[in-house]
Design a protein around this nucleic acid. Structure first.
Lengths: 267, 267
DNA sequence: CGTTATGTTGATGGCCGTCAAGAGTGGTGG
DNA sequence: CCACCACTCTTGACGGCCATCAACATAACG
């Protein structure tokens, strides 16, 4: 299923790696309790990055791979979990309930991302983390992780990097919502999602959108219909191509970035 | 990333690098005119919380109190600072430049807050942290802080708490911007600002708003005029009382919370 | 006291939220 | 394999809210 065979990406940037890095196929092999970090494909970008093998063992002692989650299954509910969750495959969303019925989306998570950090929000008790598709997650007890990080030098820095990434994600979210018109928000969201997929080693121009339209809308602070309409217009303009309900192909990344009002002058 | 080479005109743009480079000199002298952690008013909520006195000394070795900043003076410019900034007094704002001229506000900081964490945003090079009023800041070199936190147990946890707070702040921001109508956004902003002032030990009903209306608007994703109009309406309804240009008194916290669409059923 | 930046208020048009209905998709069971 | 159904997505119409432009008022500063 080499989807890159039919069409070449219209990229002007040669630095992008081809789609040789595919999604971790943890779907087929439930690794519950078996797969150690040392053979995890995410390892280079995850906590054990650049750790010696004996240190791998110490990590393994505190990392709990959880059973696979199905769509809309809750990973965590409440505030300030005692665990940090690292997504291994699939995708998650973090939400809070609103008084008016709806739910505000606080963020989407891709493999390699940390969830459960910075969710101690006041006045909003109904926080949740749940899977948007079949996903596998590692849970790490926070206290023990902090202790362990004190004994392993590389782990300390790597942990900091992951936490900073999580914080950056929220700030990116603010930037996206700061766009005033719906077109700029949707364009920036797609642009950012593409970038994050690329970071995770996934296909960056043939986007997999695990969330529903309504969830995108909630993320962007728009109505579902507006989101749908905007995507339709992007398609009519030849900028993207909707491929099924969960797929979207970026045809013109340059115009997409222009609509997203991105400063394009930096590599 | 030694960006300190850029020389700025001496107008009002005295940037962070020149100010920081004089810190080694201050290391020889016992923090001329500045307060060490052991007698800092913020200490209980800051890094040295619950630390023994000898550990205070270790901390003191890596904390650099910076010269006071004036209004609109830049504390840091660029991406991913090598320092973590802890605000001691005054207030800061974190912004990024937009292509279309305006600037998106990423966050406001109050005494005890950490700035400079999670600002490694892609595609937006023009990040800045600057003072909204006369402020004093402690800078801590990140690498040395992480090293030190490995040797002091309480520091590790306290550092984590501060970083999580910073991340929570961004998520609160998302929640505020997620409100659809302007009135709910302004109300939630005021409610949240009041809460944060209270956390910082400041007056929670006689609000000090160090930022301009336009900065509030940028924070909320609204136009300046809409923000002003909305505040005026809140005043006309007897919910708040504008006291001068930088002051606002909350007259009816309950109705304010109602407008903010906050779940009021939890103590 | 004059000047400038900031804040407020008014008028108007366009965008988007809302309600509504239809089209499409995916999953299930026969 | 096919039919069916529930859910999601899309498209249309309309009204209200807010961004924009503009003018004025007021605070801040020397």
């Amino acid at each position: 299923m080499h989807t890159s065979g039919t069409r070449k990406p219209p990229s002007a940037e040669a630095g992008y790696p081809p789609a040789c890095l595919r999604a971790p196929d943890a779907d087929n092999k439930p690794h519950a309790g078996t797969t150690p970090c040392s053979i995890c494909r995410l390892s280079p970008g995850c906590l054990p990055a650049q750790l010696a093998l004996p240190d791998h063992e110490k990590l393994r002692a505190i990392i709990r791979p959880l059973p696979a989650l199905g769509r809309d299954q809750t990973l965590f509910e409440g505030r300030s979990p005692r665990d940090l969750f690292i997504l291994r495959s699939g995708s998650l969303k973090t939400t809070v309930h609103q008084e008016n019925g709806g739910q505000q989306i606080l963020g989407f998570h891709l493999p390699g991302n940390v969830a459960g950090f910075g969710t101690g929000i006041e006045d909003f008790p109904g926080g949740r983390i749940l899977a948007m598709e079949r996903s596998s997650v590692c849970a790490i007890n926070l206290d023990r992780l902090l202790e362990t990080a004190q004994r392993i030098d590389g782990l300390q820095k790597q942990l900091y990097r992951l936490l900073e990434d999580a914080s950056t994600l929220a700030q990116q979210h603010v930037l996206i919502m700061g766009r005033h018109d719906a077109e700029a928000r949707v364009a920036l969201f797609l642009h950012d999602w593409s970038r994050r997929l690329r970071m995770a080693g996934l296909n960056w121009y043939d986007l997999h959108l695990p969330m529903r339209r309504g969830e995108i809308a909630g993320f962007l602070g728009l109505a579902t219909e507006t989101t749908s309409r905007t995507i339709s217009r992007l398609q009519a303009d030849g900028i993207v191509n909707v491929t099924g309900r969960r797929g979207l192909r970026i045809l013109d990344p340059v115009r997409l970035a222009t609509l997203a009002e991105i400063d394009a002058q930096h590599a």
